[in-house]
Design a protein around this nucleic acid. Sequence first.
DNA 1: CAAATATAATAGTAATACTATTATAAATGA
DNA 2: TCATTTATAATAGTATTACTATTATATTTG
Lengths: 225, 225
Amino acid sequence: MERLLSNIKISINEKCYLKDPESSDLGKRIVENSIILIDEIGFDNFTFKKLGVKIGSNESSIYRYFESKHKLLLYLTSWYWSWMEYQLVFSTHSIPSPKLKLEIAISILTQTTVLDSNFSHINEVVLKRIVINEYSKSYLTKEVDLENKEGYFSTYKRLVTRLKDFILELNNSYEFAFSLASTVIDGALHMQFIKDHFQSISDKKMEKEPTEFYKELVFKTLNIA
Amino acid sequence: MERLLSNIKISINEKCYLKDPESSDLGKRIVENSIILIDEIGFDNFTFKKLGVKIGSNESSIYRYFESKHKLLLYLTSWYWSWMEYQLVFSTHSIPSPKLKLEIAISILTQTTVLDSNFSHINEVVLKRIVINEYSKSYLTKEVDLENKEGYFSTYKRLVTRLKDFILELNNSYEFAFSLASTVIDGALHMQFIKDHFQSISDKKMEKEPTEFYKELVFKTLNIA
DNA sequence: CAAATATAATAGTAATACTATTATAAATGA
DNA sequence: TCATTTATAATAGTATTACTATTATATTTG
């Protein structure tokens, strides 16, 4: 848990960790460097042993914070979604126009460039890359229903729900608001992957950001001029 | 490679296998039962040893067909996309109206119920579940660029391109045709996962199929009444 | 300064994802 | 038909992974 501009917290299910990594220097180094190492070698090749070498600490010490690399991934991705939620809430808070609010929300959720922030030990640019490349692996498992029940995905689902509410504020007769919301949130991540790796099926106009694509998609679908 | 109604073939990059599994009874049993076993225990828990037990054969014999379980997954998912491509091409071949063509295409790509087919040893219903739950893992790797160059994802990309062409036939000034195509194809898989596991962010109207959602999304985005 | 707590070091385990070698069975061809 | 090729099965072995458990050594705190 970390305070952001003394308002909202980065809220992460406590079951993700055995000992709060924010509570010690070692914990912060674990989080900071796991982000860097997962980005470098990929989650599949990432081990606590390698992370131990990187931070000059021992494998067993890392296990005192996270019981598995899967839980660490849940921690990191929850952090990301919580941070997104914060940006969403903060940026739309004082906007009265539902249309502008939704527009801002789509911008935040689909932009490729990442806002600087004050979390010394978390590099949000790199964390975003991890979410693009590894988030799916956190739920595409046989344990997803159990873990979902235990609340590991609630931050993500709350973000989708917030976007759905913005959609309904603008057009409350639309019957697929949840689906449209997750199309934007999950689609934007996937679109970034396509742009980075499958250029031959990426639109030229996508060169900068998918924001325009999603804005048009959403507003046309909602019959908003 | 397998002929379908003496017309199109299920085309799979030969690099996926060491020995064509269609060329022997053991090969077919490997493919047939790997689909069933991956569905049962998930790709992460799937091993050639367990598959060997299931088919009453030896681990080492399976390795003579597929050099790794990753290559097997590439084989199975390529098979799926090739089969989808076949259905798409076959069902739209004689349709002159671009709108109807695109409508049919969206139906095929987003329907949850799966058409029966004549491939004795491949259960398409189960294979679809595998694609929903495991396809991402085939490309969310550090080797994706290399494997993409080697053509392992070409069937999938060709399918996206076909749908993009349908979109452009209907509205050739639309600048995000590729993105819209992959939104439909990949989104539909993801939507099925959400419906199955994250019901709290799934729309009530989604209970049957996401087809209506995607048709509306596409036609409104393309300014088609 | 003693006790509690955090971290590090060492060792060990079952399973994974393979490779390599040899043995045996089945199919084919001269 | 029998020799040869080819397919399959069995066995063994490897480095790595994803941990757990135990003990030792720092560091902090009361």
